[in-house]
């Protein structure tokens, strides 16, 4: 069975590369351009894994994560935080809010695919 992945990322090019490598790995991939859209999409498709960029327009990644963890319908989604900032306090915030994985940009394709598959298998 394939892993359902939702990508929340405002940078078109990055989202496109992620979609390509994840589909190659056999995942079912959806894409949202900002935070609110990501939440809406999550409620509709209940993905196994959410790849969540922190710097999102309208609602940032951490706010999205907070909402997901407090919503019983969504709380089971595995969340992978993707950030370009990569500072230690970001990682700490992600942990506290209940992120399942943390990957900094630029990432290695194989690493992020492995991480997504690991999270997908768990759920």
């Amino acid at each position: 069975m394939s892993v359902n992945v939702l990508i929340a990322e405002d940078e078109q090019n990055i989202a496109e590369s992620l979609r390509f490598i994840l589909e190659q790995a056999g995942c079912d991939v959806r894409h949202a351009l900002d935070g609110e859209e990501a939440l809406k999409e999550a409620r509709i498709s209940t993905p196994d894994v959410l790849i969540l960029d922190v710097m999102l327009p309208s609602l940032n990644g951490f706010d999205v994560l907070k909402t997901i963890r407090s919503d019983s319908d969504l709380t089971d989604i595995a969340v992978l935080i993707l950030t370009a900032k990569g500072q230690s306090h970001d990682r700490k915030t992600a942990d506290t809010l209940g992120a399942d994985a943390f990957v900094t940009k630029p990432f290695s394709n194989s690493e992020i695919v492995a991480e997504v598959l690991r999270l997908g298998a768990k759920s």
Binding site: E11, S17, F20, A84, K105, P106, F107, N109, S110
Partner: peptide, 24 residues
């Protein structure tokens, strides 16, 4: 931190696509 973020964003695309091209 801002500079780092701004630089990492294009870099991410570059790295990712170049890996895709190299591995496929």
């Amino acid at each position: 931190s801002q500079v780092s973020h701004e630089l990492r964003t294009p870099m991410t695309s570059i790295r990712s696509f170049s890996e895709i091209l190299a591995q496929n």
